[in-house]
């Protein structure tokens, strides 16, 4: 009975701490790493920020696949710089995540063991040069819609990382659209290549904005913590509304027979998304799930002796410094 009483007091205290915490976020104050936070807030943030970081570095691979084959020197340096930015963004996000008390190595372990998720779209293959255009245009386009609201999310380090990411990413989508534009102004073969890329990337790009609202589990809590400002369906509608006119300018056809502008709503109506495909890819049955993870894992495992060498060297130097001081 006595213990029960103590527990009640603790629960009461916890509840009031949480209320103060939630009120702080509601007032648009930021939460910093050393501030008190509910365990659930910490865990949710570790999950979301690390997923985001993993998506950046796995996302390097499908585009990296075309660096050595880029068709001009200008395209090659632009693509290299873009993929390099993604490494940088992964790095900023891992760092933000590390402020919550988890190491980059632990986060990598989660990725390599398949425990952690990353954006499913990177499990699709890049088959032609036009795919590099389509990824920049559609995938980065969808990512920007997701990311811009995160610049004002409640967790300080995440918000600051996102400000940097969004600033740097502004060239990525333009880079992709310019590639598409060049193809669409080119030969019939190039136009066909562009259309083929749109056909293959359109639906995965729509899926990238997440399951429909009634299937999405974390939305309400995420809204409160400003991890989300709009629902998945709202974001998807926004993406379609802004992307369809861009496809029109290219003279490409969006591969959706049901796509039609609705004068009453002021939005595009669109066809059914194949969610079965989405969940299959999430579960690991996409064309490239295995390659992507093994590429990341190989890079890390093959780098172990390099990282160890640098640490050993640093230790030896530090010892030398101590001896010299004596």
């Amino acid at each position: 009975m006595k213990n029960q009483g103590k527990k009640n007091v603790r629960d009461e205290q916890m509840k009031s701490l949480e209320e103060i915490f939630e009120a702080k976020i509601a007032r648009d104050e930021k939460i910093e790493p050393k501030d008190w936070m509910p365990e659930k807030y910490r865990k949710t943030h570790i999950r979301q920020i690390s997923q985001h970081a993993h998506s950046e570095i796995v996302g390097m691979l499908p585009e990296g696949n075309w660096i050595t084959r880029a068709p001009s020197l200008r395209r090659k340096v632009a693509l290299l710089a873009k993929v390099q930015d993604e490494a940088g963004h992964g790095l900023y996000l891992y760092s933000a995540c590390e402020t919550l008390g988890i190491s980059r190595e632990e986060l990598y372990d989660q990725l390599h063991s398949g425990k952690a998720k990353y954006s499913s779209i990177f499990n699709y293959p890049t088959l032609t040069w036009a795919d590099i255009g389509a990824i920049g245009w559609l995938v980065d386009g969808a990512a920007i819609i997701n990311q811009v609201p995160l610049c004002s999310t409640s967790f300080g380090p995440y918000a600051r990382a996102m400000v940097r990411v969004c600033k740097e990413e502004s060239f990525h989508q333009r880079q992709g659209y310019e590639i598409m534009m060049t193809l669409c102004n080119g030969t019939q073969e190039q136009k066909d290549m562009a259309q083929d890329a749109l056909d293959r990337w359109w639906w995965p790009a729509l899926m990238m904005l997440g399951p429909t609202d009634d299937e999405s589990t974390h939305t309400e809590q995420s809204m409160k913590w400003k991890l989300k400002r709009k629902t998945n369906d709202e974001l998807r509608q926004q993406f379609i509304d802004q992307t369809v006119p861009q496809a029109d300018i290219l003279g490409l056809k969006v591969p959706d027979e049901d796509l039609k502008y609705n004068n009453e709503t002021g939005h595009y109506d669109f066809g059914e998304i194949d969610w079965e495909e989405f969940w299959q890819v999430v579960k690991g049955h996409g064309m490239c799930n295995k390659e992507r993870i093994s590429a990341r894992k190989n890079a890390w495992d093959n780098g172990e002796w390099v990282r160890d060498a640098a640490v050993a060297y640093a230790d030896k130097q530090a010892e030398k410094d101590v001896k010299e001081a004596v």
Binding site: M60, L61, G64, I67, K76, L80, V83, G90, A299, G303
Partner: peptide
């Protein structure tokens, strides 16, 4: 360029690129 995305750490990857 072949190494982009495959470096021993993210920091080294960025430096080589």
């Amino acid at each position: 360029s072949e190494l982009c995305g495959h470096g021993p750490t993210l920091e080294t990857d960025i430096a080589l690129t």
